[in-house]
């Protein structure tokens, strides 16, 4: 039963990357793209965590933390860049 749930979760997460990436391509303004990238990063974190459950290796938890941290720093840096009037 757990195997099935893990597989379903993995497929749903993979599928939810698609709308986020469509928004990255379409997004009329830079902030739209940044938010969509943020969502994509959190989906990647979720995928890493699910993979960690499946493989039983706990080191992936640290990797997920690092990905989340880098995504947050990227979002903050891009927010400061937008505020200074870049990209317009």
């Amino acid at each position: 039963m757990i195997e099935l749930a893990i597989d379903t979760t993995m497929m749903v997460l993979m599928a939810s990357l698609i709308p986020a990436l469509i928004r990255v391509i379409k997004g009329p303004s830079l902030p739209d793209r940044v938010i969509a990238l943020d969502v994509a990063a959190s989906i990647v974190v979720a995928i890493i965590l699910v993979h960690s459950i499946r493989s039983g290796s706990l080191y992936y938890l640290t990797a997920a933390t690092v990905v989340a941290l880098v995504a947050f720093l990227g979002t903050v840096a891009l927010a400061l860049y937008i505020r200074r009037g870049g990209a317009s």
Partner: peptide
Amino acid sequence: ICFFLLFGAAMTLVAAIGCLRLPDLYTRM
């Protein structure tokens, strides 16, 4: 475990679809 996994996956899917579907930046946030 199954419940929390599927709940988390559903919420992440909602976040991604909302990101695509809602009308402006602020509602997408």
